[in-house]
């Protein structure tokens, strides 16, 4: 598939995530929108790694090429960091719920005045 299709798909998913962060007030939904954005970026990285591989294997005939492996490992590390981030973030949301009995982000305006 042409790489532009993947870029536009990932951009669309990313923008849906941005819109979710801007529109919703539920802290958990905002968090899920952030996950959506992370996944859009992962998809784009994988598509670019395969594009890179196609270019490299066209340049060098009859040879074993490993170009693009780095990008996929990068995606792997992004997933690792995302898992750690989710565990801490959800703990913070639970603590916030215990303190204010709500997960509406508009209650978190104590720094405002």
């Amino acid at each position: 598939m042409p790489i532009q299709y993947y870029i536009i798909l990932a951009a669309a998913i990313f923008c849906i995530g941005v819109t979710g962060v801007l529109v919703r007030r539920n802290a958990i939904i905002i968090f899920m929108s952030i996950e959506l954005m992370l996944n859009a970026v992962n998809l784009l990285l994988v598509a670019f790694s395969k594009m890179h591989y196609a270019v490299a294997s066209a340049a060098t005939k009859n040879m074993e090429v490993n170009t693009g492996t780095d990008a996929q490992l990068f995606v792997f590390f992004i997933m690792v960091v995302a898992a750690a981030e989710v565990s801490v973030g959800l703990a913070i949301i639970v603590m916030m719920y215990r303190n204010v009995r709500s997960i509406d982000v508009n209650f978190l305006n104590r720094l405002k005045n």
Binding site: P2, I3, Q4, Y6, I8, M51, Y53, A54, V65, G68
Partner: peptide, 25 residues
Amino acid sequence: LMVMVSAVRSAGEISHSQATSDGGI
């Protein structure tokens, strides 16, 4: 989204690139 799409459409570098599904990386 509009900004991103128009930037992608006007980028000449990637206009003929394909993301292949072959290769074992």
